[in-house]
Design a protein around this nucleic acid. Structure first.
Length: 473
DNA sequence: CCTGGAGTTGTCCTA
DNA sequence: TTAGGACAACTCCAG
């Protein structure tokens, strides 16, 4: 009986897994393998590492039910595979395609020497499918969204395939390392079961208020599925299917509109994966070349204040502490904090991108880079430069109760709502009555937002003309 | 090739 | 109190 290797990367699931399905269709003797790549493990990303380890432990437990085990090996993937394929006498390796530059380079090299078969599964449509008639990739979200929705969905015709997919079951003879045990993240239990529970609960009702509540920092209105999508504990197909089902079943127009808004967020994920695939250079610098010469200030003290949640703007600091403490940040808070770093402090967006990657449990190069470049106005689909978030107004609008700030900044928890987003507006005696002295218990604002707009517009004025580089740009 | 409509997420001032 | 327009100019994209 021939053996094939199922090489798991960011598809840590048995359900709706095209790479596994392909392996199963080739053989009944399957070796599920995860390789710890020291290059990737070297990145400081504790939240993602512990999520990953827990996910692998849970996958291993699931495999046991089918008489199989997960094989775990640390090493350079090419060398690990080269030696393992001989040891177990495997005839092929199946893996889900990953479109990040590092993964593509790695896989290309391996495919030169070994029978590696990449199967698409990361998104609903592989990058290169949702493109303009000219064949060029979209660089604006809305046309991409329209084209994406205009294509027939591969997922809809395959709804009842899950059971058939998982059997026949893998059999292995592993010589496997132990999975490291790390402190797990209390907010995100890393199992496919949990991912599906969350999805089911979300599309049952919160999805119908999603558009109205998703921006509220003080209300739980989002799906909290990002880490599961990031590591593939749930598939893009299953998620999109559930969204489309919810849209179909919407009881009224308003509910439908709300559910549609969530599907659009899933399409953003596909958009940025496509952007990174077609323009891998966005990891090295701004997509807009004419904006690579912005005169940043890059004051180390400003960055530290931002990083540690000590800018003196409560909504910014609350977001940054939520990130530090939980590995996750509300999307609205990501925008507010990112805008503050780039447009108020004039620190390079790359600094913020790196800090987010270091701390986010759902950190993904495509979405993270896309989001930072978008906020900075230097990416695809650039926002007008004069759109500068006012951290006080954003706080008052999206955290009207102040509870988001109170949760993450306990030193301000007694402040009345009227001043919770602008404590410096309260007189000293008033603050004292709540036990607060600015500069002692909580910082004064590091910059005066009302004056930064001019500074930012001047810095962004590089004087460089926009350049058309080649056929697709 | 030309044309015209449109472009995730905002802020601030005025009437 | 609130609604509407200015804030710029340019690229993207479909017809």
């Amino acid at each position: 009986m021939k053996t094939v290797i199922w090489w798991i990367r960011r598809d840590i699931r048995l359900q709706d897994n095209p790479a596994l399905q392909e392996a199963v269709s080739q053989s009944t003797n399957i070796l599920p393998l995860y390789i710890f790549d020291p290059k990737l493990l070297a990145h400081k990303a504790e939240q993602r590492q512990s999520f990953l380890f827990e996910a692998l432990r849970n996958l291993d437990a699931e495999l046991k039910k089918y008489g199989s085990r997960l094989t775990l090996i640390t090493g350079n993937p090419r060398e690990v595979l080269k030696s393992l394929i001989v040891t177990v006498g495997a005839e092929a390796i199946f893996a889900e395609a990953d479109y990040s530059p590092y993964a593509r380079h790695r896989d290309q090299k391996i495919a030169l020497e070994l029978p590696l078969w990449l199967v698409h599964g990361l998104t609903v449509f592989p990058p290169g499918v949702v493109v303009k008639n000219s064949g060029c990739p979209y660089t604006i979200y809305t046309p991409f969204n329209r084209a994406w929705k205009g294509l027939p969905h591969p997922s809809l015709s395959q709804n009842h395939k899950h059971a058939a997919r998982i059997s026949p079951l893998p059999v292995t003879t592993p010589e496997s390392e132990a999975i490291p045990v790390k402190k797990t993240n209390a907010a995100f239990s890393a199992s496919g079961e949990e991912a599906h529970r969350r999805l089911a609960a979300f599309v049952a009702s919160p999805i119908y208020q999603y558009e109205d509540l998703r921006n509220r920092l003080d209300v739980a209105g989002t799906s909290l599925l990002s880490p599961y999508l990031r590591f593939g504990l749930i598939s893009s197909h299953d998620t999109v299917d559930a969204a489309q089902m919810a849209i179909e079943k919407a009881p009224d127009k308003d509910s439908r509109k709300n559910a549609e808004a969530w599907l659009n967020e899933l399409i953003w994920r596909e958009f940025y994966i496509s952007i990174l695939h077609h323009f891998p250079e966005v990891l090295d610098g701004s997509f807009r070349r004419d904006l690579r010469g912005i005169r940043w200030r890059n004051e180390p003290a400003d960055f530290r204040a931002w990083r540690d949640g000590l800018t003196g703007y409560p909504v910014v600091d609350a977001g940054m502490r939520q990130l530090k403490e939980t590995g996750w940040m509300h999307n609205r808070a990501r925008m507010i904090t990112a805008s503050f770093l780039v447009k108020d402090l004039l620190v390079t967006w790359q600094e913020g991108e790196a800090w987010f990657m270091e701390n986010l449990v759902d950190g993904d190069p495509a979405s993270n880079n896309g989001g930072w470049q978008w906020t900075s106005g230097v990416g695809t689909d650039a926002v007008p430069y004069f759109r500068i978030f006012n951290p006080v107004l954003q706080g008052e609008k999206y955290d009207p109760t102040g509870d988001f700030v109170r949760k993450w900044l306990p030193e301000l928890k007694n402040l009345p709502t009227e001043y919770i987003h602008k404590p410096w507006m309260m007189d000293e005696a008033g603050l004292k009555s709540y036990g607060i002295k600015l500069g002692e218990h909580y910082p004064r604002p590091v910059v005066d937002h009302s004056i930064v707009k001019q500074r930012t517009m001047a810095a962004y004025n590089t004087g460089e003309p926009r350049i058309v580089i080649d056929g697709c740009r």
